[in-house]
Design a protein around this nucleic acid. Structure first.
Lengths: 213, 213
DNA sequence: CTAAAATCCGAACGAACGTTCGAACTGAGA
DNA sequence: TCTCAGTTCGAACGTTCGTTCGGATTTTAG
């Protein structure tokens, strides 16, 4: 059992993150958290100001740790490809070790309002810009004739990585290191690295096909 | 103004999808939908059995249309790369034309329970397997020494495509066709197509770095 | 030991939720 | 004109929600 205030605080945060990840923030009640932590409903409010603060602390702690660790590991590194490798490994290994928190971070981004939302969003933008900058550096070392759009590439990379909470089992056969190297290879060289396919054109389609009316 | 029962039914579904996408399913109330549709709270229940049925109909209709259209367009096509292009274009153009519905489909997958969840999940599995099969065919036309894991590739592709509701603006500068061709190129040939980088190894990391204790 | 401080909780608050019910409208066919 | 099925909605139901309050219990400090 947790003893100090801080230990219990952290325990409540982790439990809340687990339940938020399972049932989503809005359909989790403070009574659910009370039941899971064996802390009375009123007792919870000794450790947090509100349910929304719980969500904020989970997201902010999560981002803080992943950003701090990333900046440490990037220090002194110059090669863009190496930077990208560190970025991907850092993101995925943290994700795998904190699936609940990261799912909450990805999935409940808009569940915060006001200053709390702004605060987390600012951190997220910083993180996104950092990734975009790394990709820009990688791109500049190459001179492809038709480079992929930088915005698309950035968000595609985040999409690949953040989607894993929908399918990846950290305790399954696929190790995190294998996942990371697969994502690295897939993102950099693609699914068909040799590029033997002559045409990459996607079939055109009339824009009105999907219209409602 | 909508006149027939079916028109009003569809109007309510589309409005509900819009609000679900904006505020999430669980924090949208029937009163919100009532307000947005100018249909009284009780009147809504003339057009649906429950709030959960609204969510189900949105998801099921959405999947039905995207699957039906895909099967039509794939008919008679043999070349795996062409199939993949059709798949990506079909998915993204539908996504762009129905951002709200697709966000609800991606974001509220677990908000259904019981038979409704099973029904949608079955359709989703079918769709996923179809994508996986196309990727397998693409992979078999190549003989790479270290092919990317098929499961990782499949979900990475879905991640890229389904993440777009977090950033893509269908009315912005980037056209859907450009988005699709960028995603196609990125997925097949990668961000650095020529593969000049000697090592793709991701930096190893002690597994205990992220542990809680 | 004593008193102050920290921790904990049963019970209740007002508000909002999904859903239902019965009555009031509406328009088309007889 | 009357009837009846289709449509609409105000009002209310019982439940659950986040939060609070006053006091009980435990821990700490002098």
């Amino acid at each position: 059992m947790a003893k100090t205030y801080d230990q219990k605080h952290e325990f409540i945060l982790r439990t809340a993150a687990r339940i938020f990840a399972e049932k989503s923030y809005h359909s989790t009640s403070m009574r659910d958290i009370s039941r899971a932590t064996n802390v009375s409903l009123a007792g919870l409010y000794h450790y947090c100001k509100s349910k929304e603060e719980l969500l904020f602390l989970i997201q902010d702690n999560c981002f803080g740790r992943v950003l701090e660790r990333l900046e440490q590991r990037l220090e002194g590194v110059e090669d863009p490809i190496t930077k990208l490798g560190i970025f991907i490994e850092n993101h995925l290994s943290f994700f795998a070790a904190n699936m609940s928190e990261m799912k909450v971070l990805s999935h409940e981004a808009e569940s915060l309002g006001g200053d709390l939302y702004t605060h987390v969003s600012t951190r997220k933008d910083k993180y996104t810009q950092l990734a975009r900058q790394i990709l820009r550096e990688v791109q500049e070392t190459q001179q492809s004739q038709e480079p992929v759009d930088l915005t698309v590439a950035t968000y595609a990379l985040f999409g690949m990585m953040n989607w894993i909470y929908n399918w990846y089992d950290p305790h399954g056969k696929l190790k995190v290191s294998d996942l990371a190297s697969n994502v690295m290879k897939l993102f950099l060289n693609g699914f068909v690295p040799n590029g033997m396919c002559s045409s990459l054109a996607v079939p055109a389609e009339s824009p009105s096909v999907w219209s409602h009316g």
